Amino acid sequence: MNKPEIHTPQSAIENNSGIRIPQSGIKDLFDFIVANAIYPMCSRKGKVFLKSSKRGVLTQEVAEQIIERLNIKTAADCEKIRKEVMAKVSERRENRPIKEWVKEERPREMLMKYGADSLPLSKLLAIILRTGKEGKSAEELAKSLLNKFGTLRRIDSTPISELRKIDGIGLAKAAQLKAALEIGKRFYKEQAEKKKRLRKPEDVIGYVAEYYGPDLRDEEKEFFYVILLDIKNKPIQSVEISKGSINLSIVDPKEIIKEATLRSASSVILVHNHPSGEPEPSEEDVKITKAIVDACNLVGIKVLDHIIIGKNQEDYYSFARIGLIK
């Protein structure tokens, strides 16, 4: 087994244990402590001692020299120096490749040990990115993304060409991010498709929120979909009926009836988004909804609801819940 690498400055003197401790000044000694992740601690009885995540660094002789030269005597001394060391260690670590981190602090190892749900978003993104760039770890790269875009939704809605403008994000990393986010959206769609019958507005809103919300909230154009259901009100398929301009989606009731008839649907749910972000229906929304309901009634197809998707996760307007569809 290879011996752990022990960092020492050139101006250091080797002690009896073979470890070279800097002698030129407190700054060099502090750099030695940071490089080797040495932390001063204090027991309940007030005894000062040192801990390090690196094996073979802290012999009793080394510890005694450090404690004496830094004049560490109390719990307050330990806490003060420990905080300074932790801050410097964190700074150094963030600028090093993850493979050089202490094993227990690497994102993948943490995921394996504690589970994915225990990791902060920056570490999960670091696992997806896999590598960083020179002078910046994958986690630091992930933090740069989060600092710029704020949320996964904004990262998802940002074109690859814009993501690539982030220093360290090339085509491969941008594609990895897009693929991971798409997998997440498809997972929610799978869950939504397994839902039971859609009997009341709350069921419909929940289904639409999972199945369409992630895709349509951030669209800059208006999309109109119809969800086709069987005789038990279970979803069969969804069909895109139209894709409009920023404030208008042209919908032909005949197209909806055609799709429903082809797939033997007994009822339908209408879904469209408002790029403005406000889910309240316009006069045109109310008018086209009435036209679709009337046309479907003529051929025995029931319109269960019409859901408008707004910008935020909770922004959904249900025509059935308000009583505009009965």
Rank of each mutant, 00 (worst) to 15 (best):
A209L: 06
S161W: 14
I166W: 03
M86T: 08
A180E: 00
S53R: 09
R199G: 11
A63W: 12
V268L: 08
I309C: 02
M110P: 05
K243Y: 04
E314A: 07
S90W: 07
E5T: 10
S11M: 15
I21P: 07
T261V: 08
K234L: 15
L177S: 01
H306A: 08
F32S: 01
Y207T: 08
S266R: 15
Y316E: 01
G170S: 03
E139C: 00
E259T: 00
P253E: 07
A320L: 02
D252R: 15
R93P: 01
S238G: 11
S242R: 14
P281W: 12
E314Q: 06
I250N: 07
S264G: 02
I81H: 07
I98Y: 10
E240Q: 10
K80P: 08
I26T: 13
S11K: 13
T151E: 00
E94A: 13
Q60M: 15
P159R: 07
A174S: 07
T261H: 11
P22L: 10
D315T: 02
E222R: 12
L181F: 04
A260D: 08
R164S: 09
G135K: 05
A265E: 14
L270F: 11
L163I: 03
S137W: 08
G150P: 04
V299K: 12
I257M: 07
Y39F: 11
K3D: 15
G213S: 05
L198H: 11
D215L: 10
V102M: 15
R217T: 06
S282I: 05
P235E: 09
E61W: 07
L270R: 09
Q313W: 01
D117Q: 12
D218N: 14
G56M: 14
I292L: 05
L262M: 13
K302Y: 10
K232E: 11
K99D: 14
R130I: 06
L248I: 13
A179C: 02
V48W: 02
E190F: 10
F319H: 02
V303E: 05
P275L: 08
R197G: 14
K80I: 12
E100H: 12
L248Y: 14
L145R: 00
I288T: 13
R55W: 15
G184T: 06
N247M: 10
N15M: 11
K194F: 01
L298V: 07
P159F: 09
I269C: 03
V85Y: 05
Y114P: 04
A116K: 09
G132C: 03
E283W: 13
V299C: 09
V299L: 03
H272L: 14
E84D: 13
V89Q: 09
F187R: 06
I33H: 02
I13D: 12
L177H: 00
F49T: 06
I6V: 15
E259D: 02
R96N: 08
V303N: 04
N312R: 09
E14D: 10
S238N: 15
I13C: 09
I155W: 00
L124C: 05
